[in-house]
Design a protein around this nucleic acid. Structure first.
Lengths: 353, 353
DNA sequence: CTGTTAGCGCCTTCAC
DNA sequence: GTGAAGGCGCTAACAG
């Protein structure tokens, strides 16, 4: 076509076609590269005529700014890191979607780092932030690692904006987006108590987990509000996985004195637990009521369908992304956002009988 | 501490601390920046002494190369885009983990693009590849959009390496990593037939989907191998979601002549369908056997537990990432990789009675 | 084996 | 309102 710039004529053979640069656009629009840049970033500072010519040239060439160059120059990557403990946990998927759609609309990309339960993988976080590959991060794992404790061998890094989602990070002065776990757990406990259950077991999350601590407090709150005593023997350890629910169920089956209701702090555990109970010939909810937490997709189609606490997962993701973007763009943000949960009553819980 | 480079002393007040650059390392190690660069990229071409000094300087300063600068210069981003139709589908989570761990080990980051069923979101793909934000992509959605049909208004883009995972892309000359859907579906069908089932219903995926087409062929293969006639009335439309399984179940319940077995081409559909059947008072597997496909986590704890086809999801992800990395680094790759599936026999299927 | 040099493409002063 | 010019940090090319 035209021969500006592309001096070499070996274009046919070179597999690497060079993308349109700002120079090409500038030449075509007969302005300087600075004007092209301004027409994009601050259109109001460019004359309407010049702007029109630039826009036309961009449309004609399909010009897209090179993000690496832009990054290098502006020290921004337009990338956000999302750190989560377990990608294969269904609880996170809808949250991720909420995050992703919000980020995308704002022009940000999402990089996912799955910690996979192995602390070694925290290197991910460190590597990405240290190298300045992301502008900010959303933390779903309740930790604040990679803190770059400013010492020998530590890259003296710019602290990037962070947002904690779901799992509050105690002591960290960063925005928190979450639900009121304690209140929700209390509510479920009281719901069970209100149906006449006096022996209510509690299947916990990992002890170190902040969610667990909140929900456990809520469980005790609920017992107290209902005038029921707290019995440590009815606290069964779990870790939110299906397998731990299965294990908890096995322990329950083996007992002499069984609870009449079990409050599992995740739906996966509740489903695993119900499975074990049913396999052992116990009926749910006739013999034992089972409640969950989260309201994942499978809760509604479990057999029996699961009474649980609904979390607005998509909205949680959206809120976290919105706050982070505000932070990145220097807008004021709220330090804490709490979204509402809902008690969803289905078939796995019945009056104590 | 020491004052090389950092001439300004306003460090206390400036919130943006500049990260260590290659120059700082070079100065400290008393070599040129080129040597530092080489010590990292091609250590064998640097004298052991120089290398040692460089490494020491890096350790001392915590130097991490600036990826934007590296990208700009080398035209590589060390980022891979993963395009998938639905992030909240549990089927993908373990695949993603397989991809992520493999990419990370090779120094690549993973950007996720969730199409969310909306074709408009294909802009994602276009935007990322057009801007050169990624070196390659793994496609889990069976499409090859963003083809940049080289016309007016289209950025004349470098075609980046692509790999198709799970859903083969017909006509595209890119590596395919998948299972043998047809053979697996045939095997399940024959398994059902071998238990005496003569009226076997089939709950399909979306008609346009390549997986669906393969599995449907496999279903017919299986019927034929078992000497059973194919009856279009026993093909029930679905789209792999729980909801479509529920809907399929409702249709089934309403029928006069019911099948004795139902083969659902996804576990979610099978679980949704079982739920509906059970709610309607039918027993699984006594009245109707139900089989799934995928072997997601919940298959084992469904009630009854689900007979299904196991897919090596993590391995699929790993294989795709490995192939893409090979491609990116110019190594020869296999054009097609097929991983083995397994028939998992559980409680949702029983002999025809 | 090593250093020097020249950009990668963009944005952003600084002049006009 | 616009253009010229410098430099973000790195690596590839070329000398030595």
């Amino acid at each position: 076509m035209d021969d500006l710039g592309q001096s070499d004529s070996a274009e046919r053979e070179d597999p690497r076609i060079r993308a349109t640069r700002i120079q090409d656009v500038a030449k075509l629009a007969d302005v300087s590269t600075a004007t092209v840049s301004r027409a994009l970033a601050t259109p109001e500072r460019v004359s309407p005529e010049a702007r029109a010519r630039v826009l036309e040239a961009i449309a004609k060439t399909g010009y897209v700014p090179n993000p690496a160059a832009r990054s290098l120059r502006s020290q921004k990557t337009f990338m956000v890191l999302v750190v989560l403990p377990d990608l294969s946990n269904t609880f996170f998927s809808k949250i991720l979607r909420g995050i992703e759609e919000t980020l995308f609309d704002a022009g940000y990309g999402m990089i996912i780092s799955d910690l996979d339960g192995s602390p070694a993988k925290e290197a991910h976080f460190a590597a990405f932030t240290a190298a300045g590959r992301v502008d900010g991060a959303i933390l779903l794992n309740g930790h604040l690692f990679g803190q770059s404790r400013e010492g020998e061998g530590q890259p003296a890094r710019i602290a990037i904006p962070l947002v904690a989602l779901c799992e509050a990070i105690p002591g960290a002065d960063i925005p928190q987006i979450e639900i009121d776990n304690r209140a929700a757990a209390s509510r479920m406990t009281q719901h069970l108590a209100s149906l006449g259950h006096r022996r209510i077991a509690y299947v916990s999350g990992p002890a170190s987990n902040i969610l667990e601590r909140e929900r456990f407090l809520g469980f005790k709150d609920g017992l107290e509000a209902a005038g029921l005593p707290f019995d440590p023997a009815f606290v069964i350890p779990g870790d939110y996985t299906i397998e731990s629910g299965v294990a908890a169920g096995q322990g329950l089956v083996a007992r002499k004195t069984r609870p009449t209701a079990v409050f599992c702090t995740s739906d996966e555990m509740a489903i695993g637990l119900m499975r074990t109970l049913l396999s052992a010939g116990l009926r749910v909810p006739e013999d034992i009521s089972v409640a969950g937490f989260d309201d994942i997709e499978f809760a509604a189609v479990a057999e029996p369908s699961l009474t649980t606490i609904h979390q607005p997962r998509r909205e949680l993701g959206q809120a976290a992304a919105t706050v982070l973007i505000d932070l990145l763009q220097g807008r004021p943000t709220r330090k804490q956002i709490r979204l509402e949960t809902e008690l969803v009553i289905r078939d796995s819980v019945a009056p104590a009988g």
